[in-house]
């Protein structure tokens, strides 16, 4: 197996008495899209900023490309960082900002090409102070992908973006992945992680509560079958009620759904508003907070 791009071992981060990250260990392999998810205040931004090299760990080690992430000269030319908050000077234009930050990464690229990727070509001469929130996110993404780095950190990349910009951003990420880039993502939109992440680390109160593929995480919880409360004979499966909706929890979705549909057919019962599906990440999230 190839050497990991990121290695985190027993990472601890404390602010005074507050223990933000506890004994976090994980790896990110080349070409992976790894999503670091968590409830508010779970410590994911603290963890991410330590891996990016913005913070020094209280204990434990972090290796990026085999180096300390604090060794900027060694690691930064190979990685792009999209910060959670903007951090651009309001008195510089979009083009000037990309040129400055791009140049400082140590990579080479064409400012025009990068602006084209994020759809800001026509804003090249506009001052950052005049950009909308979504445009600032795209500018941030532009500086992260300048020079097509091997590793890209995306800290809540789509917050504040409209649906078209969001789709465009994910399309660019897909293209970067085709070129072999490794992506580390945090997001509040669990659907994005569910659709795109190869693996997910789920943090709660500073520790990993679950780690694995989307399938690993969702299979740990039962699937759900829902339908409007029907008239007729007793149901063939144990169920619970959620208002007027019947909810059946099952680890054998296909078998139980077949049983239920057969029962409905035989008894001439109409199952209105029928839906059935695997657990979503949302449910996994709710279960860790419970």
């Amino acid at each position: 197996m190839s050497t990991p791009v990121i290695e985190v071992e027993k990472l601890n981060l404390k602010y005074g008495d507050f223990h933000a990250v506890k004994d976090l260990s994980f790896e990110v392999r080349p070409g992976e899209l790894y999503a670091l998810l968590g409830t508010n205040g779970a410590g994911k931004t603290s963890a991410l900023e330590t891996i990016e090299g913005h913070r020094e760990p209280t204990s434990g080690t972090v290796r990026v490309f085999g180096h300390s992430p604090r060794d900027r000269k060694a690691v930064r030319p190979r990685m792009g960082i999209m910060l959670q908050e903007s951090g651009f000077s309001p008195d510089l234009t979009v083009g000037e900002s990309v040129r400055l930050i791009g140049q400082l990464t140590g990579r080479t690229d064409d400012v025009g090409r990068v602006l084209d990727v994020v759809g800001l070509t026509r804003k090249a001469g506009t001052l950052v102070s005049q950009l909308s929130g979504g445009e600032k996110r795209r500018l941030d993404f532009a500086t992260a992908v300048y020079g097509t780095p091997e590793l890209i950190f995306l800290d809540e990349p789509t917050t504040g973006l409209d649906i078209q910009s969001r789709d465009a951003l994910w399309e660019s990420v897909d293209r970067l992945r085709e070129n072999g880039s490794t992506i580390v993502l945090t997001t509040h939109y669990l659907e994005e992680a569910q659709q795109r992440a190869d693996r997910i680390g789920l943090m709660h109160q500073g520790v990993f509560r679950r780690q694995g593929t989307v399938g690993d995480l969702t299979r740990a919880l039962p699937s759900h079958i829902r339908f409007a409360f029907p008239d007729g004979p007793a149901l063939p499966l144990p169920s619970s009620a959620d208002g007027n909706t019947v909810v059946i929890e099952t680890f054998e979705l296909q078998k139980d759904l077949h049983l239920l549909l057969g029962w409905a057919q035989d008894n001439g019962v109409e199952l209105r508003d029928l839906s059935a599906g695997p657990t979503s990440l949302d449910d996994v999230f709710r279960s860790i907070e419970a």
Partner: peptide
């Protein structure tokens, strides 16, 4: 205050 310092420190510049 506007995090420009943090942005600069996200690059290879020391």
């Amino acid at each position: 205050q506007n995090l420009f310092l943090k942005r600069l420190r996200s690059t290879a510049a020391d």
